[in-house]
Amino acid sequence: MEQRSKRWIVLTVLLGGFFGINFLVSYYTDWLWFGGLDHAAVFWRMLQARFASGILFGAIALLIVGTNIWLAGQFTRQALRLGGSPWEDGEAPGEVLLRSRMAYVVAAGALVFVLGNIGASQWPLLLRYMYDHPFGVSDPIFSQDVAYYVFSLPFYEFVAGFLIGALVVSAVAVGLIYAAAGGIRFQEGLEVMPRPMAHLSGLAGVFLLVLAWKYRLKIYGLLYSQGRVAFGAGWVDVNVQVWAYWLLVLAFIAAAVFLFLNIRARNTQLPVRSVAVLVGGAIAIGAVPA
C-alpha cells in the first residue's frame, strides 16, 4: 500500500511539473512581449487577475467536486471494508484504486485543476464585475441600470454555467465510483442503494436550483433577442417568454424540493415526481411561440 502511495505521489509531481513548465514558458513569452511594448504593468495586472480568478473558481470547484468525491469515497471504502462489493461476491472492479485515498485525491485534484484553469481564463469577466460602475441609464423593460448588462450579467452567466459544469463532472465521477463499488448496478434494470440514492438526489437537487438561477438570468437575456424584424425584446418576449421562463424557474425549484426530500426518503417515487414536474415545465415552454 505504501509503495502504491509513493507511485501516486511521483505521478502527481511529474504531471504538476509538466504543466508548471508549460505555464512558465507561456507567461515568460507574454512578459517579454508586454515588456518590449513598455506595458509591463498591464502584464502584471493581467497575471494578478488571472490568478485571482483561477483561485476563486478553483476553490468553488474544490468545494463541489472534492466534497462529492469525498462522500462517494467514504461509502465505497466502507463498503469494501465490509467485504467487497455490496451486492456481489468477489473483488470489485478497480478495487485497488477504490480503496486508496490517494486515488480520490488525485482524481479530485485533476478535475479541480481543469475547472480552475477554465475559471482563470475568464479573468476579464471578473475584472469587469469587480469594477462595476453605473451608467445612470436604465432599460425600459426590467428597470436595470445598463451597467448590469455590461458588467454583472456576463459574469453571473459564466458562474451559472461553471456551477452546472462542476456539478455534471461531480455527478459523472461519483456515479462511476458508486457503479464500480456496487452502489449502482445495471442488472435487470437500474438498482441504486439507499446511500448513493440520497447523495445523487441531493446533487441533482442542487443542479436544478442552479438551472433555476440560469433561467432567471435568461429573462434578462431576452433584451438581446434577435427577432425577425428588430434586435431586442419583442412583444412575445416581454408578454409571453418572460412568464414561460418564470414557469420554468418555479418548475426547477419544485423538482429540486422533491429531490431534497428524497435525501431522507431514499426511494424512486420522489425522483419520478421531480421528472414529472420538469416534463410539465418543458411542455409549457414548448408551447410558447418563438
Score class of each variant (00 low, 15 high):
54 G>L: 10
17 G>M: 01
236 V>N: 15
180 A>N: 00
4 R>V: 14
98 L>I: 09
179 A>I: 06
288 V>Q: 08
289 P>E: 09
26 S>F: 15
126 L>D: 04
231 F>M: 15
21 I>T: 13
164 I>R: 06
218 K>D: 15
99 R>Q: 07
158 F>M: 06
280 G>D: 09
189 G>K: 05
139 D>M: 03
150 V>M: 07
270 L>C: 02
122 Q>R: 15
219 I>S: 00
226 Q>L: 12
8 W>E: 06
277 V>L: 13
122 Q>I: 13
113 F>Y: 03
219 I>K: 03
272 V>F: 04
246 W>M: 14
166 A>P: 02
25 V>I: 15
162 F>V: 05
33 W>G: 08
201 S>E: 03
19 F>R: 07
235 W>I: 11
109 G>A: 08
195 R>P: 11
164 I>P: 02
232 G>H: 08
288 V>L: 01
124 P>F: 00
283 I>D: 01
33 W>S: 08
243 W>M: 03
18 F>L: 12
276 A>Y: 07
143 S>K: 06
165 G>C: 01
87 W>M: 04
200 L>K: 00
157 E>I: 09
224 Y>I: 11
12 T>I: 14
186 F>I: 10
72 A>G: 06
220 Y>E: 12
242 V>E: 14
191 E>P: 02
137 V>L: 05
76 T>K: 00
286 G>I: 05
257 V>C: 10
72 A>S: 10
267 N>E: 07
212 A>V: 07
80 L>W: 00
260 F>N: 00
202 G>L: 00
92 A>P: 11
207 F>P: 11
155 F>M: 12
241 Q>I: 13
138 S>F: 12
56 L>R: 08
125 L>R: 02
100 S>Y: 04
194 P>C: 01
187 Q>D: 12
170 S>N: 00
29 T>D: 10
183 G>M: 03
9 I>Q: 13
77 R>Q: 07
47 L>C: 04
61 A>S: 13
283 I>A: 13
64 I>W: 02
163 L>P: 00
281 G>H: 08
96 V>P: 01
